[in-house]
Amino acid sequence: MAAVARWGRGIRWYVRELTGESAYERYVGHLRRHDPDAPVSTRREFERRRTDAQEGDPGAGFRCC
């Protein structure tokens, strides 16, 4: 049973990395390590900036059209 749970966690991790869902947690962790007193953007603000950056760089391959 432990192997099945480990396999499930691995799949969940992979999907979160693939879809970018874990990017906000990485952002918060990085900010807290490097500047603990800095204000942290909300998830909504973070996603808006991330989307704007992706759409502003058409050569990055984030969109097909």
Results as ranks from 00 to 15, higher is better:
Pro39His: 06
Asp35Arg: 12
Phe46Tyr: 08
Val40Pro: 00
Leu31Trp: 05
Tyr27Thr: 04
Arg49Glu: 15
Trp7Glu: 11
Ser41Gly: 00
Arg12Tyr: 15
His34Glu: 13
Glu25Tyr: 03
Arg44Ser: 10
Glu17Leu: 13
Gly29Ser: 05
Glu17Tyr: 13
Glu17Asp: 15
Gly8Trp: 08
Glu17Ser: 14
Arg26Met: 11
Arg48Ser: 09
Asp35His: 09
Arg9Leu: 13
Val28Gly: 00
Arg16Leu: 07
Ala3Pro: 00
Glu21Tyr: 11
Gly61Trp: 04
Gln54Arg: 07
Gly56Pro: 00
Glu47Trp: 02
Arg16Gly: 01
Pro58Met: 14
Asp52Ala: 14
Arg32Pro: 02
Arg44Asn: 07
Cys65Asn: 14
Gly8Lys: 10
Val15His: 09
Ala23Gln: 01
Arg6Trp: 09
Val15Ser: 09
Glu55Arg: 12
Leu31Ala: 09
Gly8Arg: 13
His34Met: 13
Ala38Gln: 10
Gly29Asn: 03
Ser22Arg: 06
Tyr27Gly: 01
Gly10Phe: 03
Gly29Asp: 05
Ala60Thr: 05
Ala23His: 01
Arg32Ile: 13
Phe46Cys: 01
Thr42Gln: 01
Glu47Tyr: 04
Glu25Asp: 08
Arg32Asp: 04
Gly56Tyr: 01
Arg44Ala: 10
Thr51Ser: 08
Arg50Gly: 06
Arg49Ile: 15
Asp37Cys: 15
Arg48Cys: 05
Glu55Phe: 07
Ala2Leu: 15
Tyr27Ile: 03
Cys65Ser: 14
Cys64Tyr: 12
Asp52Asn: 10
Glu47Pro: 00
Glu21His: 09
Pro39Cys: 02
Trp13Gln: 06
Glu55Asn: 09
Val4Cys: 10
Pro36Asp: 14
Ile11Glu: 07
Gln54His: 04
Arg33Cys: 09
Ala2His: 14
Arg49Met: 15
Val4Tyr: 11
Ala60Arg: 08
Val4Arg: 11
Ala38Cys: 07
Asp37Gly: 15
Phe62Gln: 12
Thr19Tyr: 08
Gln54Ile: 04
Ala23Gly: 02
Arg49His: 15
Ala38Asp: 03
Ala23Asp: 05
Gly10Leu: 05
Glu17Pro: 05
Ile11Arg: 10
Leu31Val: 12
Gly29Leu: 03
Met1Ser: 11
Arg49Lys: 15
Glu21Asp: 12
Arg16Ser: 02
Cys64Ser: 12
Arg48Gly: 02
